[in-house]
Design a protein around this nucleic acid. Structure first.
Lengths: 219, 219, 219, 219
DNA sequence: GATGAATGAGATTTCATTCAT
DNA sequence: AATGAATGAAATCTCATTCAT
């Protein structure tokens, strides 16, 4: 957690720091991100950074919570909690895709974190994050079963892990592929890629995915 | 590619180096892995390492190819290429799971690499790896359609990305979850976890997954 | 350019660093000079050096500019810009000789740099330096022609290169020779050599050189 | 001095080693030249190099003597020892220029050595080389005086140092300048530069220089 | 005579963090 | 609250040289 000093900062300074730090952590793995580079770009003293945040990890976790919070808000705003499973899921997907395209930096920070297995310092935090994600999907699936839109004989946990990975990894890479990018962070370097994806295409992707999800692969 | 020097080494020395290096790269992101630590543990001179490998990247890529090669061999040995899609997929899954449990280190090195987006030095290599994986699944799906076991109206590419992510991420995390581990590399630290998973359980997981894959979620 | 940090240093510390660094760069070619040695002798942390200078090259170029600046100042102070060519040249020579004897370290750093052809990193800088030196002599010669003290049929550029090399190399080595030294940097190791050269001798050398320059070798 | 083993080598192998080593030492200062690079390019074992030469210095000095010998032979062949000073000097110049243009590698090795003041290991050798050069010019000048083509009141040593520096430095840089190169080793990288200099131009340069030498700058 | 693996010192550089001002 | 200098461990990599085979 940032220290109080950070929140006492004039808003534009605070925003600037956040923005530059996001930039840094979005573009490389946690261990390669550099505080030195951040303070240099932000034009603040290195010592100041340590008045604002305990250490590198503290900063990163703050950014991560920020990003996760924004993403959650974005999704919650688009998803009708009362809707049946498939509708809600569709809405989640759409919101997720839009968020990633609109906020590539936030989205990359989250993804970077989730990939940071083996980063001792982040271990617990990542575990917690995964648990929350899983919980989100578990609830959806459970409700789907209760409402009768999902078969009763489905293992909730397994299904949750599966749909979660489909959204966070499979879908992301698929979109990147059809956009012509190669690695996941190409969106950061070539923001114009995102504009190639129009509403219709997004709708097409979602429909295809829903079809898979509903009926599986078998004829 | 390692230099000839490396291959001229007595086998036990070569094995030892590989083993220790795998250990290093399995447990942390590429940028945090340390050649210094490796040579210290291996009891060889720093200069020697550079007689064997061009540089850090060269070493990592060698290990990665080694791991990928072993995994591929393992899977190919278990999968009947003539079988229909769902059978072949089942066999792939089983082989994949077994490989991960039997060779957690190799499996972690592969996973680490695939997560190393943003690692400039590895970019091209990772992209290539992803392409190959996708190709593998694409062919399976395509053949499945031709043989009539998969619906004709399914987008091959999308489906491939989805099943790929399910296997590489969703399934892995699910298994780890039921094993009681928390993060993906816990298997490295507590190898005894792997033994908790018996044949029956594995069969159960596979059956559940196949059900999802065949019929989707809908009743 | 050194970072601001360096200029904020207490003067004696700054001087000490400069002095030790000059020592290091005066005595060996650029590529053999060692930052590690400098910090060890200066009793500062290696990291500190990188707070002061961007890198080795930055440090060297700073020292070089320092030395060149001091030499230029020294010479300008002794040379009457309005004087006719031969007077001005005589004054230049005298100032140059005195500078080299009084500041052997600075003088060696400059000479080392000018010899550092093939030092990729310094290439552009050296070229620039040579251009400036040439320009200095070209102007002198050109003015000499305009004032009628130099023959009109003389190729300015060629003459400039020639007098430049005579001063920077021929004269230096001659003086060293009569002082009993052997290589150009012997003055650094045996500073007492310099004292052997008295005013009269210097005057003699200059007169001889001027004679050559004015009338050439022919009777 | 190379060991006997080196001279026992088949000629083409010996030539190849020499050629590649010349390449290495021509392009960078002694301390940056690398034996590792040489053996790699020559395709021989590192140990073999140490069967042929005592160490790096031994190799370099051999190359240097080789280059110096060739240059001397080249010059002696073109210079009539009985001719009067100015004729002999003219011939020397012409031969020197031609040698440098025809054998840029050899010429660069020599120049690199002469610039390697401060290179502890080479100190004595360089001193010796300079002495020999000086001796060469001293004799010329002395003979010139005896023959009456040079004024009697000229200091032989000073004049020798001056003409020596004019030829080895001033002239070289002048030629490079009009060829469009910037640093002395540009001739190595762009050999086509040399071809721009035709016979007539060379003659022009020599005439100009002789004029300076004979009559000095004064009208 | 040839080989080439082994060595280890040493080079430059980066980094997160501390702390006196 | 802000500063920014100081630190030193650690990283990657290069090199000349040795020596057993």
């Amino acid at each position: 957690m940032p220290r109080q000093t950070f929140f006492n900062l004039p808003e534009d300074k605070r925003k600037k720091i956040i923005d530059i730090a996001l930039d840094e952590f979005a573009g490389r793995p946690y261990s390669k991100a550099s505080l030195s580079r951040i303070v240099a770009r932000a034009g603040i003293a290195k010592g100041s950074m340590y008045q604002y945040f305990e250490d590198k990890k503290d900063l990163f976790m703050y950014l991560l919570e920020l990003a996760a919070g924004e993403k959650l808000a974005y999704i919650e705003q688009e998803v009708d909690p009362g809707a049946d499973f498939f509708t809600a899921f569709e809405q989640s997907m759409l919101a997720g895709i839009r968020f990633n395209l609109d906020h590539p930096k936030l989205s990359r920070v989250i993804a970077n974190a989730m990939d940071s297995t083996g980063e001792e310092a982040l271990h617990d935090f990542i575990v917690k994050g995964r648990k929350m994600t899983l919980e989100y999907f578990s609830q959806m699936v459970r409700r789907g079963q209760e409402q009768g839109s999902i078969r009763k004989d489905i293992d909730i946990k397994l299904a949750s892990y599966m749909v979660s990975s489909m959204l966070s990894q499979g879908l992301t890479e698929y979109i990147l592929d059809i956009l012509g990018g190669s690695a996941v962070d190409d969106l950061l370097k070539k923001p114009e890629l995102a504009e190639r994806l129009n509403e219709e295409q997004i709708k097409g992707i979602i429909d295809e995915t829903m079809k898979l999800l509903r009926n599986g692969l078998q004829p």
